[in-house]
Simulated scan of single mutants.
Amino acid sequence: MDTTKQREEFEAWFNNEVFSLKLADSKLVNCYWDAWQAAQKAAIASIEIELPERKSADYFADESFSRKDLAAIHNVTVEQCKVRVTAAGLRVKS
């Protein structure tokens, strides 16, 4: 989710739960916003994703496809998942 969308959701929560006033430019709202973002970053930093391990050609028993090709497809897919997970700010379990 982009920062603008997060800010909109935060302000909606803040205005409904904390104050019934529209205080989008106040220092108090910005202070809460900074705390909100820090909490989000801390929560994301604590998430660790475990991906499947790489496989060798010997792992695959399907005779319809080359075992070497299946292993390559599997391993490339795992690597692409790793790239996307880390791009989202999450950690990949080693």
Rank of each mutant, 00 (worst) to 15 (best):
S66E: 08
R91A: 15
F14S: 09
K55N: 05
N75I: 02
N30R: 13
C31N: 10
A35P: 00
V78E: 03
V76C: 07
S56T: 09
R84I: 06
A38C: 04
Q6C: 06
I44L: 13
S66C: 01
E17V: 05
G89R: 03
S64M: 03
A42Y: 09
N75Q: 07
Q6H: 09
P52N: 11
I49D: 01
F65D: 05
R67G: 15
M1Q: 12
D58I: 00
D2T: 07
K68G: 01
E9S: 06
D2C: 04
E8K: 14
V78T: 08
Q80W: 11
E53D: 15
E8Q: 15
N75S: 01
L70K: 05
L90G: 01
I49A: 02
K68S: 11
I73A: 08
K55F: 06
N30K: 10
F10G: 06
R67A: 13
V85C: 06
S66F: 00
E53W: 01
I49Q: 02
E53P: 02
A87W: 00
V29G: 00
E11M: 14
I47Y: 00
F65H: 00
S20F: 12
F14A: 06
W13N: 03
A72F: 05
L23F: 09
F14L: 11
F65W: 05
Q37F: 00
L28Q: 14
R67M: 11
N75F: 03
L21S: 08
K41I: 13
V83A: 12
R91L: 11
K55T: 05
V76T: 12
L70C: 08
K41W: 07
W36S: 07
R91M: 06
V85Q: 04
D58P: 02
K68Q: 05
Q37T: 07
D34I: 04
W33Q: 01
N16Y: 07
I47L: 06
E11A: 09
A38Y: 05
K82R: 15
R91G: 08
M1N: 10
A35R: 12
S56V: 04
V83N: 06
E53A: 15
S64D: 14
Q40D: 11
K41S: 11
L21I: 13
